[in-house]
Nucleic acid binder design. Structure first.
Lengths: 196, 196
DNA sequence: TAATAAAGCTAAAGATTATTAGCTTTTCTT
DNA sequence: AAGAAAAGCTAATAATCTTTAGCTTTATTA
């Protein structure tokens, strides 16, 4: 892989574990397998690496939530909806890259306005818009009771986001957290889906 | 105020703004109005200040969620419930000390297991347990429909916690966020409260 | 009031940090 | 294959950061 990408990769790993200020350029270089001054052939400085990583986070966001395609077709039953939702959650929760971006953003969200905005987009807007569309579509098909799809999407996703964040900081509780998520989703369906 | 407490006060302010690694002992000392080496008359080192702050965070938690008294009496109507809940939220959102603890914890949650546990207690367990009891009591009075009070409490609080976190990083959006919270609470009441 | 303890100060050590300068090796292009 | 560009290295600078040593001032206590 190109060195520039390797640097970003290792920087993201280290930033997500120890934070930006807790990570030295020497550490990054060592993980990449080069010496610290060589980093400066690829980036102007440490902050330049940070900004490139924010670009990465934004690109990942666009890739994941920007297009409609990854939505797939709408679920046709409660079981399909629950399974699809759980699959997405487990993927998001476990995928190493996504996990690192999440931990990185949560720690650096106060550093500047851009990081704050990207964090909100990742943590709230993306998932919420996506589920607003899914629930809206399923309402039209009569699978959900008539209500404001945006409010319902928020009810569904808020708790999931919060529990995933907990799993990030207490991975030893992952099993119980996954169960909590499943319980929450089932309860959500009990309340808002029509009986079939 | 005793210097030791002043140090903790200013350290919390700085840590909540710039993070632990982003804050120098010299900065803390300057805010307190002493020179950096004088800090060491009160604390063994920088990490000792951090640990004392975690103690503070735990103490605040106990003070706020440990006793039953701050619950007050149970709301007797939907209006009372909404008003009480909004008051609590606005207080939590705006109180400077609580805000600082929240921002501090969110940034340092990955530093060690103790910080991770304290963050979960502040962010999840405290509010959830509190609202589980409130909703449980109101269910017995017939104000809420019969359901699992813990699940309902989680539905209610998760989104609030998430939106408060957003207000912490994007304070310029506070007005809209407050409105989102209110809309969420009203919807929650629409769905789960009995008609009176 | 005299003695003691606590809390402040200056100066400095010692470690770590990000970054630059200058040189060498590797890689690419023609 | 020759020349140029890219990417690596070593050595060093300059700033910063935490912490210690030793001294002075302030506050407490007997």
């Amino acid at each position: 892989m190109a060195t520039r990408d390797r640097i970003l990769e290792e920087a993201l790993s280290l930033f997500s574990e120890n934070g930006y200020d807790g990570t030295g350029v020497e550490q990054i270089a060592e993980k990449v397998g080069i010496k610290a001054p060589s980093l400066y052939k690829h980036f102007k400085g440490k902050e330049d690496i940070l900004n490139a990583l924010i670009d990465t986070a934004e690109a990942r966001y666009e890739e994941y939530f920007g297009s409609e395609q990854h939505l797939g077709r709408l679920p046709e039953s409660r079981e399909e909806f629950v399974r699809g939702t759980m699959d997405r959650i487990l993927f998001t929760m476990c995928d190493p890259m996504i996990r690192k971006i999440r931990k990185f953003l949560v720690q650096e969200q106060f550093r500047n306005d851009r990081l704050a905005a990207v964090t909100t987009r990742h943590q709230l807007e993306g998932v919420q818009k996506m589920y607003t569309r899914i629930i809206e579509g399923m309402m039209e098909k009569g699978l959900f009771i008539k209500d404001d799809p945006e409010l319902l999407a928020n009810e569904l996703t808020a708790q999931v986001v919060l529990l995933i964040a907990q799993a990030d900081r207490q991975p030893q509780l992952e099993r119980e957290i996954t169960q909590s998520i499943e319980r929450h989703i089932c309860h959500f369906c009990d309340v808002y889906m029509t009986i079939q």
